[in-house]
Nucleic acid binder design. Sequence first.
RNA 1: GCGCCCGUAGCUCAGCAGGAUAGAGCACCAGAUUCCUAAUCUGGGGGCCAUGGGUUCGAAUCCCGUCGGGCGCACCA
Length: 593
Amino acid sequence: MPCTWANRAGMTDARINLHADFARVIDAALDALEAAGTLPAGLSRGAVTCEPPRDPAHGDLATNAAMVLAKPAGTNPRALAGALVAELEKEPRVTSAEIAGPGFINLRLSDDAWRGELALIAQSGADYGRSQMGGGKVVNVEYVSANPTGPMHMGHCRGAVVGDALADLLAYTGHKVIKEYYVNDAGAQVDVLARSVHIRYREALGEDVGEIPEGLYPGDYLVPVGKALAAEFGDAYVKAPEADWLILFRTRAVAAMMDMIRADLATLGIHHDLFSSEAELQASGKVDAAEAWLRAHDLVYDGLLEAPKGKTPEDWEPVELPLFRSTRFGDDQDRPIRKSNGAWTYFGADLAYHFQKAQSADALVDIWGADHAGTVKRIKAAVAALTSADGGTPKPFEVKLVQMVQLLRDGQPVKMSKRAGTFVTLADVVNEVGKDVVRFTMLTRKPDAQMDFDFAKVVEASKDNPVFYVQYAHARICRNIRKGAEESFAPSDANLALLGDEELALVKLAAQFPRTVEAAAVAREPHRIAFFLHDLASAFHSYYNLGNDRPEKRFIVAHDSALTAARLFLAAQIGQVIRNGLALLGVEAAEEL
RNA sequence: GCGCCCGUAGCUCAGCAGGAUAGAGCACCAGAUUCCUAAUCUGGGGGCCAUGGGUUCGAAUCCCGUCGGGCGCACCA
């Protein structure tokens, strides 16, 4: 049951949030200085910031404008700051503007300005924090793209969660997002899969197949696929040569694996918009077309494959292959797009795949595991080449590497091997720990740092888990609203003047949500949202506990309905911001724990 | 050997496109539970931001070297 006390999406008016607004105020003040001749016109303001100072004692907002612009303006920071202060003091919401340190300008805003922001949160509801920054640009985010040879395991988990959260974050900041999964259904791996399934097929028909041979996939998850094929085709393919059944079995096996993968992803709340098949791509002739185009532009040539930089394998034998000139775009050596048997290399198909994606997007983002870091340069080179065909600027393309997750159980590393069938499946972990814990945990550190995931610890020590901490703050808020309702108190913005410094401190923190969202989107770092939520929850819990010793600080003050209404309004809006943040991360905002 | 990522408190990690006295959680120590459920809070100790240079008004943050850890390194994906 949704909270009825706040979520008023769709009621957003044209007002923008306070932090964004003050960036404009400072900009306007600089314009005024230019007009007055105090500041030369046309200086770059790219380095000018407007953000809350680390130390709240310094004020509500600080700008470095004077320090950054003094040098190009040929003046000194404090002189420029003085002029800027005079300008900023004209803004009614500014109660003080002071020069500090080497030339910072510290601004204090009126309490009413913050109370206004609180009202804005209520008006905006689920849209508080939403941004038009992306300007409707289409961004294709490709993530997971695990080989369709088995269930999702924990090795895929981090990329899946980070990619999904990033895609949602970009959508929330005004981008049109396509969530895409590349299905590698054309390589040698899926042939191995088909052969593995053939054994399970024979097994289903009563044959004693014994141990699954080395090099094939031994997992039980292929048993039902074999049974289904046995039921459908009987013994028609038991003795038939591989050529008769390979494609059929491969197709069926891949379809079954993809069903399984989709189901696994669904347990994490992940749903892709588009699944692109490598086999279909090849069949469509797009890879050939890419090669032809590259050859026509002298970007693919037949040449000798060089040994890897700095290391020559002992059994090195030079071969002539069609090579892409990735060195022209910063790679260490040119890369083959076909194997000597004429089949496409992974890279050869991947290059055409990225070109295909680029046709329907303004920008591309790939989320890859760090074990593929070595191939970043070549694919970036290829995208740059293919998308600047007519001498235009290449399509923006980023590869975000997600570092390895070390799986631990009680501090002991869990060894995973698909071959040995000893991998920990994603579904197992989600069932054991829950979607919210998995998602939030994966988002509590930056993606390019390695992380440990001791899921014995995550399961047991739920009190140490940040996700519960944040959810508890939200649940506490909901509980107080409910309790207030039982006593006939409703949140109201009629008397927000009753909210003082301690209450407004919470508002000031919550008001940073929009800029945190934008910064996270720019940096492609959804984990910043998780940390923000933890900070906000912490501030809320602190405030809440003031009521232990000082009953007059509680949300519900029975004898003062106006104060109670204002406090509950505050609580409702803090809850709204927590809810918005959790929604971005795909984590439930529980109303009760 | 080459490339990419990382090195911040005892442990796990933040540090907001360089900004003012480097933060949080856990652990440790000392407190708060007739409470709006303490799944919470308050206070305390604990750092040469691996290391050596450089860039500038200013560096944990940017650049170069060194050391340490991870990942990858022919037609595997």
